[in-house]
Nucleic acid binder design. Structure first.
Length: 578
RNA sequence: GCCUUGAUAGUUUAGUGGUAAAACAAGCCCUUGGUAAGGGCUAGAGUGUGGGUCCGAUUCCCACUCAAGGCUCCA
């Protein structure tokens, strides 16, 4: 995507698309259409139905326009001219009035000679390529609905996605990359490797972990617990339900209600299925009076929460209705906040590095004017300052996003890409000056006076479900040794080697290695194929030679022959590797 | 939730307005074979659910359920 030509070309391709569609579908009203990271899209308002079946027809018309090599010419016009030119198109008029509020400079692009019939004009800032002939090979990809200005209160428009590349090879390469990415889809691998299941019998957006997936999850959970204890966190357990009043007090009920499941009546008192853990951890802090000596007080939990996500938003393990966070709340003094934030930040960077993520991004979500938030401006500004200070200290790159704050404070989110390049929010760190006040939290300071602590909410991996989804795709199912559900599998060459094989299996299991044993009356080639498809790191092959020598032959899932060795030596290698 | 598409054995797919085919997986048998699929046999779905049209529907129509992609990247 380093090609400077690429973006104008895609934008021009989008113009050709809307020109083609205006020709083919009378009455269609254009809304907008920008280039994107991977191609372009075009939003329009049309009463009839348009589906992917219509693509060949549209692409044919587009190709005709490209072949004509029509000039694409920029022209500055006045707002009056713009209003007249687009008087039949409410969407364009909307843009014109927006320009009016801003710099008042309207530009249009003509495709074809303005004097000639059939030439096309659109309100557009550009830039574009000089003529349609400069547009490379293109392809329309999908149809979707999209709300005007991304607001669901507005009318839903139709959107067509497409892409365009300088050469046929690059276009084919892109399409092939998408096909390849689909092979790594965590839903597909989840089924093939028997990691988890989600089905209608259990409910939408609810995960049932199968034995293999549970091993991976447990390894990660254990790692998180151990590492966090080293960092001074105390691990706790909280219940899955609690009185509704807890979340009324926290403010979640007022601002977050639509994400919660309906309250249930227990002996005339309303209870909620836990949508977030904060009020539970506050109980630990409140349990007895705290002094400044107790701070920072760090409470962590691998805690499940339940949230109502709109059905259309659910996506495999990436977006679910029941999920588990590697959650924690840090109660500290205002002076400690920056250091605590920084320490969490370093921990997350260390974790992601360990898993091999390289191109994740950090988004600092701050308050926007419109949304609903709790608290005074002064507190917000203070929190934002602390967050930025810590981010700067950490030396990491970040970008600011207005409107992405939590309702109680600014937050830093870690965004990781899935196989298809879509970004998902995983880790999160949030500064909160509100909940401590609402719960009346206090600690006794040096001077004997009561003060209100600051709370930091943080989840380095975010949700284990989502993180596992991304991890599955990241590793393409070939998990590193410590996470692999089966770490080694013993493959006897024939039945007569099963007995010796069993001894090897027992020895491996005794050494704490998750071991499989393939005793099927199949050929070794078949056994190797099955184990390879299951992405088992090590295959231990046993035949006459090994039985006679008392040795084992080892092959990796990558197809590398490690050679023959003693089983004790092999076990030692695995241990060192761990 | 809304837009587009889709739903056929455990999985991946084929197929037809006259009552469903294959591969892999599964079970059994033969083969005991040295680094990515040896061979045979058997069982397994009545085509997501409900309704309609029709002599007859898995195929056509409607509703529902579920799934996939999108609803952020600003003329």
């Amino acid at each position: 995507m380093e090609n400077q030509h690429l973006e104008p070309m895609r934008h021009s391709c989008e113009h050709v698309l809307h020109q083609a569609m205006t020709d083919l579908y009378p009455g269609l009203k254009r809304a907008m259409g920008p280039p994107t990271e991977d191609g372009f899209y075009f939003d329009f308002d049309y009463d009839g139905k348009i589906s992917e079946e219509d693509f060949p027809k549209i692409e044919k018309r587009m190709r005709e326009l490209v072949n004509k090599d029509l000039p694409i010419v920029k022209k500055d016009i006045t707002l009056l001219e713009a209003k007249d030119l687009f008087k039949d198109n409410p969407y364009k008029l909307d843009w014109v009035s927006k320009i009016e509020q801003e710099d008042g400079r309207a530009t249009v692009y003509w495709t074809g000679n303005p004097q000639e019939k059939g030439s096309d004009v659109d309100l557009c800032k550009g830039p574009h390529v000089a003529s349609t002939g400069k547009i490379g090979p293109f392809k329309l990809l999908s149809v979707a609905g999209a709300y005007w200005h991304g607001d669901e209160k507005n009318k839903m428009l139709t959107r067509i996605y497409g892409t365009c590349f300088p050469t046929k090879e690059e276009l084919d390469g892109y399409l092939k990359m998408i096909e390849e990415a689909k092979k790594r889809d965590h839903r597909k691998l989840g089924r093939e490797l028997e990691l988890f299941t989600m089905n209608n019998e259990v409910g939408q957006g609810i995960t049932v972990w199968l034995p293999n997936g549970s091993i991976i999850r447990r390894e990660i959970e254990d790692y998180m617990v151990t590492e966090q204890i080293k960092l001074g966190f105390k691990h706790v357990y909280s219940p899955h339900i609690g009185q509704k009043s807890l979340w009324e007090k926290s403010g979640h009920w007022d601002l977050y209600r639509e994400k919660m499941y309906s309250p249930m009546d227990v002996d005339g008192v309303e209870y909620l299925v836990k949508p977030m853990t904060c009020p539970m951890h506050i109980q630990s802090f409140e349990f007895r009076p705290k002094s400044y000596r107790d701070l920072p007080y760090r409470i962590a939990e691998i805690g499940s929460v339940y949230r109502y996500e709109q059905s259309g938003e659910l996506a495999g393990l990436l977006r679910v209705r029941a999920f588990t966070q590697d959650d924690a709340h840090i109660f500290c003094t205002q002076d400690q906040a920056v250091d605590e934030f920084l320490s969490v930040f370093n921990f997350i960077n260390k974790l992601y590095k360990m898993f091999g993520f390289k191109d994740y991004r950090i988004r600092l979500g701050i308050r926007s004017k419109k949304e609903k938030y709790l608290g005074e401006d002064e507190l917000w500004n203070k929190a934002q300052e602390k967050a930025i200070e810590a981010l700067k200290k950490s030396g990491s790159d970040y970008f600011i996003s207005e409107g992405d704050a939590a309702f109680y404070g600014p937050k830093a989110d870690f965004l990781i890409k899935d196989a298809l390049g879509r970004e998902w929010q995983c880790g999160t760190v949030q500064i909160d000056f509100m909940l401590p006040e609402r719960f009346g939290l206090k600690y006794v300071d040096h001077d004997g006076k009561e003060k209100v602590p600051v709370m930091i909410h943080r989840a380095p991996l975010g949700s284990l479900e989502r993180f596992l989804a991304i991890l599955i795709e990241h590793y393409a199912g070939a998990f590193p040794l410590w996470l692999a559900p089966v770490q080694a599998i013993v493959l006897p060459i024939s039945d007569k080697h099963n007995e010796y094989g069993k001894k090897i299996v027992d020895e491996l299991i005794r050494s704490g290695i998750r071991t499989g044993f393939d005793q099927e009356p199949e050929r070794i080639g078949k056994k190797i194929r099955i184990a390879t498809l299951q992405k088992i790191p090590y295959m231990i092959i046993i035949g006459d030679k090994e039985v006679n020598e008392g040795s084992v032959s080892v092959r990796t899932r990558e197809g590398k022959d490690i050679g023959t060795t003693k089983i004790t030596e092999f076990i030692q290698t695995l241990k060192n590797n761990h």
